[in-house]
């Protein structure tokens, strides 16, 4: 890290790009199709989605950092196992911390915290970036991709919780008087809570993103 900070400032334009690009044009979920597995199952409510986004960002950033520091001493043949061990250790740490400080959210996330290990974003970034770059840019790349993942998670969860339960982070947003059971006109869309709607919401996000950014169009 010492060398890179002599040559260029820590937050040079190039390094900042590592954080901003994954938010839009190189988004891990909507463009690179990585890490969808866990992205959708935890988005029925906003709170677990935020916890999940933070956990993934932490694991991606630190596994990128560690692997990048070890990149010259890892034999290519066994790199997958080494990567899995590093990731699994970090995920165990995250899991234990969540169990200790937010036990209710940890229960809602159930197996999906463990599944961060097999989240393709982390493996993908290790293979594509951390193995060939210095620790500091790798760390930033990890944070950027974690945030890009979190952004999509939070957008999906926002709409699913708002339309499905009429709440945000557990607070009632749509006034209780509007509901049919209280003599109003509004009914929650129960379908939004169910798993398939996460996929359809994501499909629509991709549609909007691609119609704005023509470079991402597929044949």
């Amino acid at each position: 890290m010492g060398k890179s900070s002599e040559k260029e400032p820590l937050f040079s334009a190039k390094n900042l790009k590592l954080i901003t690009e994954p938010l839009d044009s190189k988004n891990p979920i909507t463009v690179l199709v990585l890490g969808i597995c866990s992205a959708l199952a935890v988005t029925a409510k906003l709170k677990p989605a935020i916890v999940m986004a933070i956990s993934v960002t932490v694991v991606t950033a630190f596994s990128n950092l560690i692997i990048s520091m070890m990149r010259k001493s890892i034999p290519t043949r066994i790199r997958i196992i080494v990567q899995l061990v590093v990731i699994a250790t970090l995920v165990i740490l995250v899991d234990l911390i969540l169990k200790a400080y937010v036990p209710d959210v940890s229960k809602q996330l159930s197996v999906f915290v463990g599944l961060i290990i097999t989240n393709c974003i982390i493996m993908g970034r290790l293979e594509a970036f951390a193995l060939g770059n210095r620790p500091w840019p790798s760390f930033l790349d990890g944070i950027g991709n974690g945030l890009g993942y979190g952004l999509i998670l939070i957008i999906v969860a926002f709409f699913r919780e708002l339309l499905g339960s009429g709440t945000l982070l557990g607070y009632q947003v749509i006034p209780a008087d509007f509901f049919v059971k209280n003599g109003g006109f509004y009914e929650n869309n129960g379908l939004m809570i169910l798993p398939p709607m996460a996929l359809i919401t994501l499909g629509i996000i991709i549609w909007i993103q691609r119609s704005r950014n023509k470079k991402l169009l597929e044949e």
Binding site: V33, I204, I206, W207, S211
Partner: peptide
């Protein structure tokens, strides 16, 4: 814009 990934989802 929906072709490929979007429609698959």
């Amino acid at each position: 814009p929906l072709r490929g990934l979007g429609i698959a989802f």
